[in-house]
């Protein structure tokens, strides 16, 4: 294993470790619900991750289709690059496989992330709710996806790629990027509560 690989592996451990720690801490609750249930928690969770996320059902999606699609591209880019990083840890050369597919997936990702960042900067309402961390998170993400892309094209070398990836990893649990794990926990927690109360029933489309 090369030094670069070891650095990236360490970074991966840091991310998994710190995010798990954060996730567990964030779910600490004084007491669980003592009221008599009407529905099932698991129904609510299942509903929250399926029907409730369908574009036809969710207004944040169907009223903001453009933003939603940009967001989807962005996240595909991120997941692709995360997968690439995992492959990199095994063997840096393998991470350069599928360069064409990589380009097709990653390029829209970079573009979408950039458009979203610009939108955040130019819209008054978005500026009002954003802090430096929100801009930083966008920029870091763009750099991350771009690094993977440029690595494919041999524009950045092994060392630069490893440096960028581990730099991102250090920042990830500190700012809003921690939503990578909190998304699942928050959605499950709220969905579960609504399932418990019988608001979300599964399977059922309202």
């Amino acid at each position: 294993m090369t030094v670069q690989q070891i650095i990236v592996l360490t970074a991966a451990f840091w991310v998994t470790g710190s995010l798990s720690f954060l996730g567990i801490r964030s779910m600490r609750r004084q007491k669980s619900d003592v009221s008599t249930p009407e529905g099932r928690i698991w129904d609510g969770i299942a509903y929250a991750f399926t029907y409730s996320m369908l574009p036809g059902h969710k207004e944040t999606v169907n009223r903001h289709l453009v933003k939603f699609i940009l967001g989807v591209f962005l996240h595909i880019g991120v997941f692709w690059t995360i997968a690439k990083t995992a492959v990199y840890i095994v063997n840096p050369a393998y991470a350069r496989w599928f360069p064409v597919i990589s380009g097709c997936v990653v390029f829209p990702g970079i573009l979408s992330a950039s458009v979203l960042l610009v939108m955040r900067i130019i819209t008054r309402a978005m500026r009002a709710i954003s802090c430096l961390d929100d801009y930083a998170a966008s920029i870091v993400t763009i750099i991350f996806i771009a690094a993977g892309f440029l690595y494919d094209l041999h524009v950045v070398n092994n060392t630069v790629f490893a440096g960028i990836v581990s730099g991102l990893a250090v920042y990830m649990p500190l700012g809003k990027l921690k939503h990578a794990v909190l998304f699942f926990l928050a959605r499950a927690d709220f969905g579960g509560r609504l399932g418990y109360r019988g608001t979300y029933r599964f399977p059922q489309i309202h």
């Binding site: 004084q30 944040t60 903001h64 709710i129």
Partner: peptide, 21 residues
């Protein structure tokens, strides 16, 4: 915070899409 669960206070990504709801 202890009652609701800290997870709800730090998950927001400020996508700003909630206005229309």
């Amino acid at each position: 915070v202890r009652k609701l669960g800290p997870v709800h206070y730090q998950s927001c990504v400020k996508c700003g899409l909630c206005g229309e709801t």
